[in-house]
Design a protein around this nucleic acid. Structure first.
Ligand SMILES: [Zn+2]
Ligand SMILES: [Zn+2]
Ligand SMILES: [Zn+2]
Ligand SMILES: [Zn+2]
Lengths: 132, 132
DNA sequence: TATTGACCCTATAGTAACTTCAGGGTGCAT
DNA sequence: ATGCACCCTGAAGTTACTATAGGGTCAATA
């Protein structure tokens, strides 16, 4: 498998794969005669794991930890469970933050009549309300 | 007003204010004899606008645009309204993305019995499901 | 008066997770 | 032999700041 094939299979950009290699997240694959990277199935599995974790919002640092833990088949999964649980809390906070500011924006958009800047409720919502 | 005062009033770090100045978002203020920045009320207003916009999730580029538009008191606010409306759509998408992955995480955390890595449902949820 | 401490200055580098760019090879088909 | 898709490396750019190094200013205090 060449890097472009792996990229397609995992929906990842070629540059990102090289970046993961440089970061030590994926082992350096062997090379063919033309110095092209040649990947095996294990690389595909590992990259898939990384991408799925990233899609779920884990940081690369967390992915690094998860990969290490995942390699230890007989160990307890307690630490994994903790990381996931904490991450859910984090996501919940993000969602409620976003919901709050969404509501504030909707409020001002609804109040605007499409008049001039001087009367725009959106601009008003951005102006000096915050000085504490 | 010195930079520290402005920082406190707007809940902004001093370094951030200098950064905004370098980025051209805030006009360079005059200096006192000791080369300290001296701010006027107009600076406070402008910085408040910027911070409020950032709090609402607009990018600095959008803030730049909003500032320009806001200066034109007699112009129509149509463009402002459009930017805000688009931003709401963006936030909505972010919220639903986060909700989706939150649900996926909760599902796998719920299914995990705290056993070994080999049987962990969370690890399972991260493994090769994605290869398309 | 000398010194302390809080505050200010500039310039540069670091952060996360990539993406882009410059400048070049490889491999296959026409 | 030449075009084209694909590959290579190394360095710099991206966003919105934050941190660090190395140094001035100023008002109060010992
Ligand atoms: Zn997290
Ligand atoms: Zn309006
Ligand atoms: Zn937006
Ligand atoms: Zn588990």
């Amino acid at each position: 498998m060449k890097i472009g094939d792996l990229a397609k299979l995992t929906d990842t950009r070629v540059e990102t794969i090289r970046y993961y290699e440089k970061e030590g997240l994926i082992p350096a694959p062997s090379r063919n005669s033309g110095n092209y990277r040649v990947y095996e199935d294990a690389h595909l599995k590992r990259l898939s794991f990384i991408r799925r974790s990233r899609d779920l919002g884990f940081t690369l640092e967390q992915v690094r930890t998860l990969l290490k833990l995942a390699d230890n088949r007989d160990a307890s999964c307690m630490e994994v469970d903790t990381i996931a649980a904490e991450h859910i809390v984090e996501i919940d906070r993000k969602i409620s933050d976003l919901t709050l500011l969404r509501d504030q924006l909707v409020l001002s958009v609804d109040r605007c009549q499409g008049d001039t800047i001087a009367d725009c409720k959106i601009i008003e919502a951005l102006a000096p309300a915050r000085m504490k």
